[in-house]
Amino acid sequence: MCIFLVCACTTIPIGYLDTLGTAYKSLRNYPGTEIDKDYYDGFQYSFIRAQFSGAPPVILVLSKVENNEFFWVGSDGSTLTTNQDGKIIKTEGINRDIEFISTGKKKYKLNLFNPDAFYQPYEFNLTESSYTNINYLDSEILVMLKEEEFYSKIIGWKNKNRYYYYEGRPIRTVQNIHPYLPSLRLDFYYK
C-alpha cells in the first residue's frame, strides 16, 4: 500500500541512534527518553519507538501495510511486523528473531531463531479488558488495557504481554517475543 522512506540517521536525535538489532546488548538501565510532541511533529511518517527493557530506545518507521500487517523498518534494516492488534508476528535482524505461523483463526505456531526451534506450539489467552491512564505525547490519556498470557508447551516458556489501545488502535505494547530477550516495549505513533 503506502511506501515510506526510512528516515536517515542524521535526522534522529543522538538518543535514538542505536539500532534494534543490537540495542538489547547495550547497557542495562539506560534511562531512555519518551517521544514528545516536537519530536512527533518532526516526523513525516508513522513510526514506533521500540525499547528492550533497560536498553536504549530505537525508532522504526512504517514502510508498508499489507493484509492488516504493519511493516516497521529500522535504520539498520531490522524489521518488525505487527498485526492490527499490535502483536509482533515477525522480526528480522534482531539476532534472536521470531516468526509466528498462522494455523487458523487466532492460532499460531512459533518459529524461534538463534537457537533455532521451529514450529513450537503457542497458546494464548486474552484477559478481560480494563482501563488505565498512560502518558502519551506529553499528556495523560485513558486507554484500554488487554493482557495476554501465553504458553509454549515444549520449551516450557510462558509469560504475559500487555496491549494498550486508544480509539481502537494499539498505541503501546509490552511483549515478550523471545525466551532469551528482555521484554520489548513498542509505542505507536500514527500519522
Binding site: 537457537p115 533455532d116 526451534a117 532469551y180
Partner: peptide
C-alpha cells in the same frame, strides 16, 4: 541438530 537447538530453550545455559 533440531533437538540440540530446542534443548537450549528447555535447559537454558
Amino acid at each position: 541438530s533440531i533437538k540440540a537447538q530446542i534443548s537450549e530453550y528447555i535447559y537454558p545455559y
